[in-house]
Structures are given as structure tokens and as C-alpha cells.
Design a protein around this nucleic acid. Sequence first.
DNA 1: GCCAAATGTTTAATCGATTAAACAATTCGT
DNA 2: ACGAATTGTTTAATCGATTAAACATTTGGC
Lengths: 337, 337
Amino acid sequence: MKKKISLKDIAQKVGVSTALVSYVLNNQKLDRISKAVAKKIRDTARELDYRTNQIARSLKTSKTNTIGLIVADISNPFSSSIARLIEDEADKHGYTVLYGSSDENAERSNKLVNIFVNQQVDGLIIAPTEHTEAQLVYLKKNDIPFVLIDRNFPGQDMNYVGIDNYGAAYKLTQHLIDQQRKRISIISFTSTLQNLADRKKGYLECLRANGRTADNALIKEVGLLFQKEQVEQAMQQLLNLPEPMDGILFTSNTISLYALKYLTTVNIRVPTDLAVVAFDETDAADMFYAPVTHIKQPLPQMAGIAISTLMKNIAGNVAAIEVQLQGEMIVRKSSVE
Amino acid sequence: MKKKISLKDIAQKVGVSTALVSYVLNNQKLDRISKAVAKKIRDTARELDYRTNQIARSLKTSKTNTIGLIVADISNPFSSSIARLIEDEADKHGYTVLYGSSDENAERSNKLVNIFVNQQVDGLIIAPTEHTEAQLVYLKKNDIPFVLIDRNFPGQDMNYVGIDNYGAAYKLTQHLIDQQRKRISIISFTSTLQNLADRKKGYLECLRANGRTADNALIKEVGLLFQKEQVEQAMQQLLNLPEPMDGILFTSNTISLYALKYLTTVNIRVPTDLAVVAFDETDAADMFYAPVTHIKQPLPQMAGIAISTLMKNIAGNVAAIEVQLQGEMIVRKSSVE
DNA sequence: GCCAAATGTTTAATCGATTAAACAATTCGT
DNA sequence: ACGAATTGTTTAATCGATTAAACATTTGGC
């Protein structure tokens, strides 16, 4: 490895102290420093191709200008879209992003949190998975700034930005009802995560508000892991019912994906036989022969709020905020005859 | 911010020097240290919830256990898939990944390289964009380990792992010919990047080898930026030809996506009217009513080789390697009647 | 009992940048 | 012309962990 240039090298070459070099290169005390020396320092720095050693600076200033981002799985389009937006927002503030995928696994999430904390990130943005409350409480207790996205733990007084999942599911369900669908099914997640549970709640509440009784045979749940197999099984069971559903709500982009793929293998026409609505916008659901009516989350806004909240928290302690944005329902062919 | 626990705090509490604490917590010289003291140090560390300050350690050891990853756009499924695999591989070696999207923009790429280098990453994995040769030469000159993925600059003696683009395009074209397609079109990139150019070359060479002459009207190019508009325009022009194509090769997942979307808006049936083949595996192309025949890149293998090569380079200087893997052609409905 | 080896722990320099405080050299006001 | 203010630069401590080398104490061999 080639020797790296330090302040000391510049100082020696110019014949001044490292302090002076530091001041000049950081544009500090410029009113006190002679123009000639300043120029010489700058020229020499350029000539030697000096690069600030951020590690050393971070050690001294205890600021790394780095944030940690934990998503469920960066290869999921929801995660990578929000990650990209967060990256751009962070960049505007001079921050670089460290990232990791938790795989919906509390242990792995914990490992990532530890790595990031030891790496001295200035703050974290986390899409939390189940059973990670303790980690978050730990962060809070240690005054490490963080913002939750997509999912949260209510009543814990933590920064959060996401959408109104209850309302979104309600809207989708109502839409199916408005389209004269009689037997409306749902595939949601078995999860202790409030936000995912809210999607089912919105569905149930909407049915009730429309004077319908929920039919348990039409309500399926899958785990966050092994979704493919479970979704296929759920679809199979639903379609084999004596009286199958004529409308269905998928509560995530992955559930949609696997379910739609399954639908292409059986003889069911969307929307004629089955009207489909779902959460999240994806190219795949868009490419389905009947593009899917869905809830579009305001990701750019979410990323913006997440980062600006984090920046405020890094700058100084402020009260936690919980932001719930509204998802927009995009109506497409999959639900309209 | 709550006060962080340092080695010094533990040393004071136990009543020993920081050196001893460091040795114990790093399991060094354990044959020389009394068991009793070691235990006390470990217990105290746990009690105080000590976390190594990686920044300080990195400064001393000049190792950050961090690698920088630059992709074109993390929200593109190709990028995020490989990113995820690289993350996992890096993790196996105890490395954390910093990342950034270059947006096919040399300036932005340069900025990212600078940030990462200043951040003292131990190495870089880069999917380079056009006009970034100088940056890479700079890295090489400064002995900063890096590995190129997906795209390279041949003859520069840089580490690279990607696929045989020429061969892959050749295979796809041959497949169309084997399917009795007479007028085979291509949409490729206008780019100085060798690897993208190779895709067009494979197509041309295959036509020639089959005794056909390339028809310039059937050959379209789009820029890496503003792909959507350009792809739509290209498709429009192709379909408006007096004698349109009956087979087409899309040289990337994004070209496919936009072109397929366009196809759903016009009255062209795949594969009957038009046989489609493409590069890269995506959920979207899979969800198309005629799932798309494509080249599947061995991403896990690529990620594995990229990381293991990088690790070797970080460990010590070794000769650069250029690896070209074979993509696998997955035949689907889009090209077979 | 005495020197050497083994055992246990500390000292102190170092990584590179930051920055308050000290120091030195001019200029200025009266 | 003398002390104060201004201008220009350096000193030195610090961030927290690492580690070679030094030091101190005990054990052991003969």
C-alpha cells in the first residue's frame, strides 16, 4: 500500500506546523493567517494529493458523517427503492450510508446494530423486524439517534415515519366492495408487528362498516419467512373452497408476486373471476396482464422526513415524532371490469 | 449523548492498565495473564456494556473492515441483487459494506470513490460507468484494492468479474434463428463500455455466422440515461417499419421492462408476432404474459469471486485477475411458439 | 542461595487530525 | 517611546485502542 499523505507531510514540506495546515485546509482562522502561507499550503496539499483521513478526524470530533441503514432485504424492490432515496437525501447532508439486510431476523438485526454502533455511525434508519424492541430501547437509552421507517413499535416514543396501513387497507377493501365483489379475501402476515396487523384490521373494519361478516375461510396468513410456499398453499386453499372468493387483497409486494405467479398457472381470469388489489408498487405487478390496483407509498416523502428527522436528532435532542403519511390508491385493470 | 465506555473506564474500575484490558478483550497473551484478572476485566466489560470504538481501532491498525460498493443504481434489481449477495459474502469475512449509486455519472462516481477512500475503506467493488477509467487508474496507482463487476476496461490489468456478454448475446440470437425468426432486431446501448458493446457484437457475429446480413433498420441504440423515452421511441420505429421484426433481443433488464410495457399497449402478440429474448432475470419479465427467455447471470458466483478476490488483494498484492463466467440461457414462452 | 527463566503487568509511543491556549512579532495610539 | 492591540504561528493535549518494550515479581534449577 502506497504511503498516504498526512497533514504532517504537508507541514514538513511547507515548513509550518500541522496546526496551521489544518486551519487552512478547513478554512478556519483565515483572517489571522497570511495569504502567502495559506496559498503555499493549499498548493502543496494539491500537489501531494492530500486526502483527509476521516478516521482520524472522526476520532477527534466524534462525528463520522455516516448513517446506518437496516432494511429487511435490500434485494426487495421496496427496500431498495427507499434505500436509494435515503442515500440521495443523506448525500445532501454530506452523509454516507452504511447498510445491511436483517432478513426479518432479530439476531441478525442486532448484529447489524452492534456493527454500526461500534463503527460510530452518527445515527440509524431502521425498518425493524419482530422482536427487536429491546435493541431499539437500548439505542434510545444510549441516546443514539435513530428513525424507524415502514414499521414501528407504538407507545415507545420513537421516531417513526410510515403510512396509515389501516386506512390504506380500508381503502382497498372498500374499493373491492364498490366493485360489487361479494366474497373478499385477504392474505396478510402472521406477525406481531403493529403495522402489518393494521392492514388486516383495516380490511376487517371495512367489511364490518359495510355490514358484512368476515368469513374466516377467506382470511389467510403467512409468515415473513418462506413466503413463496405459504402463499401458494394459501391460494390453493382459497381457490378450492366450495365458494371461492371473487376479490382479494394482498398485503405486500412479495405476497402479490407469489400469488400472481400462482394465478398464471391456474385457470382464473383477473379481474373477471377475481379482482385483485395489493400494497406497494412494483414493476412485476405492473407487468401482470391485468396491472394491479395498489397502494403507492410516498417513498420520497418518507425518505425526506426520515433523514431530516435524523439530522435534527443528531444535531441535538428533540422530542420523538411519529409521522403517518397517506398512501395513494392507484386503480388499475386488476380490480375493474 | 450518553458517555461511551472506553478501555480506560474498564481499566480504572478494575485497577489495571488499559494495555492489559486490551490484551484480555482481544484474547492476546492469555498465557501470560492471570485468570483472575482476566475474568474481572471481562466481567467488568460486560457490566459496563463496553463496545470497541472501531474508529480508534481503525486509526491505529489502519484497517476499517469496511468495503465500498458502487453500483449504477441500487434500486435496479440487478444492482440490488448483486449488492445483497456481496453484503452476505462480505459479512462472512467480517466486513461491512458502504454503498452508493453512481447513476451512470462519472462525476458522481468520482465523488463516491473519494468519500470511500477518505473513509479509509479497505477496498472497493465497483460496477464502473463510462469515463471512469481515470479514477480506476488512480486507485490502482495508489494500491487501493478494488474489483470491477459487470463491466470492465480491458487491457488495464484490473480485477474483474462478469459474464461473457458476447457469448450470451450470441446464444440468444442463435436461439431466435433456431426458432425460425427471419428478421431479428436488437435494442442495445450507445456506450463506450466494452461489455455493453460486446452484446451487440455477439448479435452481429451470430447473424453473420448464420449467413445473414444485418439490417441497420433493425438495430437500435439507446443511452444509459432516459432509457424509457428512448426505448419507447425505438420500439415505435421498429414496429412501424414496412417489414417489422419477428424477433428481438433486449440487452438489459431495463430495456426489457420499458419495451415489454410498450408491447402491452400495442396489438402485438408475443411470441406469435414477435419472439422476445433478453438479458437478466427479473420478476417483471417473468410476470409478462409470455415469460421472457433470458440470460441468467451467475450472481452468487460473481459476488463470491468479487469478494474473495478483494480479500486476497487486501491481504497482499497479487496479480489482477479477469474472470468471465458463462450466463445461462433460460428458455421461456416469449420465444417459443 | 543465586542467577536465569517464567510469569504478570505497566509504560509509553503511535495512528492523524483538531483546537484551545500560548507564544512571538508587528503595528498602533497617544 | 512604551504598553496595548493586532497579526501570524506553534505548542501540546486530546480522541481511544494497540503493542513493542520495559519492568517487576515469582519460580526453578543446580
